[in-house]
Write a protein that binds this DNA or RNA. Structure first.
Lengths: 209, 209
DNA sequence: ACCTGAACACCGTTCAAGT
DNA sequence: ACCTGAACACCGTTCAAGT
């Protein structure tokens, strides 16, 4: 309405605002026009930052949600559908402390963190079902899981299989939880976390040769 | 166009046609108008069978997808958002044969079947992230899993926790698979199934006290 | 480079009307 | 009971234009 170029517009600001709308009104409540309003800009302005439109915005949201603490802007990937987010800047001491832990603790720390992130943006869970943008965070996660599983004694095909089992379990655990969120027989967060850890421990135990 | 009352319209026909469209053009490609066209009916005719509109249709699709072989029509649930689908009619001999298996085989048979069903309607996976309609099939599945886990030696809170871990793993495993479907580093179905079973065996082993 | 504003084709849903 | 058809408010996206 007031009509002034809002120079602050950036890919990250747009994504954060989109996640805000998703949190408040659900994924179906996110429209380009509403997103524009929230950013105090005409809806069509976001097309300048996401030329391939809502599809690209969704991919970027999926990348953002699955990526550890974001630092700066997003850089355009070279592939047709790629989005890249740089990961953690300030948490390097944490990283060092984590690396000295035994393999199962390392996986557990990662899993709790991943779960918390997915839960924080639970309104975007359905986006993750059909988008696996290649991010730096994904690459690091796989490397970390594979190393931990190798340390646990797995080898050969068991490593990618065990790693996929862990990724699937975390994704599914959050999916299962948000799926039941509105129901009166759904456990509260404390019990949901307890169940998550119970299943994770079982999976880790069963994975060990 | 030709304009004749297509008396054959029913809830199930609508759902099946909707799943057809979803399979072909994705969830975003399903519109009431397109659905009407496919059913050779005006779009507004489906509102007579789903008075609460697309939201109710989505809930019914979620119920349909998570429910074993459907037999007849869908009956209206009494709760505000409930949909009910009757389960298996012809498979009773199967059920008897399955009941005589050891607990871990019973769970594995169920898991493979559940996975296959989710995979068959993989375009609707994102619908399942925010809808857990109470179905007869869900109730039976929980009863079966709880009984099997009790037989395995679990007791107390470990039973619902173990059961949720299994449900979460199956959901997440399919989610993880369809999530990576377009990517060139995605395993083919044979390897995907192998990974699914590998993780399931690990989880079952880890769940046993 | 970054944003606007009008335009177009499409969408979900309501409602009065037909049979 | 079951379906039609017009209408309304909204949507994603394109494009020419502004600065």
């Amino acid at each position: 309405m007031a009509s002034r170029n809002n120079a602050g517009l950036s890919r990250e600001r747009i994504i954060v605002e989109a996640l805000h709308i998703i949190a408040g009104r659900g994924l179906g409540g996110l429209s380009m026009r509403r997103l524009g309003d929230a950013l105090e800009v005409e809806a069509m302005a976001v097309y300048h930052h996401f030329p391939r439109g809502k599809e690209q915005l969704f991919n970027s949201i999926a990348a953002y949600v699955t990526t550890a603490r974001v630092v700066s802007g997003l850089s355009e990937g070279e592939g047709p559908e790629e989005e890249e987010l740089p990961a953690a800047g300030t948490g390097d001491e944490d990283a060092e402390r984590v690396e000295s832990l035994p393999w199962d603790r390392r996986i557990t720390v990662w899993a709790e963190d991943y779960r918390a992130r997915l839960l924080a943006y639970s309104g975007a869970m359905s986006l993750l079902m059909h988008r696996a943008p290649r991010t730096l965070a994904e690459h690091r996660t796989i490397a970390m899981l594979d190393a931990a599983l190798a340390e646990a004694g797995l080898s050969g095909d068991d490593v990618p299989r065990g790693r996929d089992a862990l990724l699937a379990y975390c994704l599914g655990s959050v999916g299962h939880q948000v799926r039941h969120e509105g129901r009166e027989d759904a456990p509260e967060e404390a019990e949901a976390l307890a169940r998550f850890l119970f299943g994770l421990r079982a999976l880790l135990r069963g994975l060990t040769p």
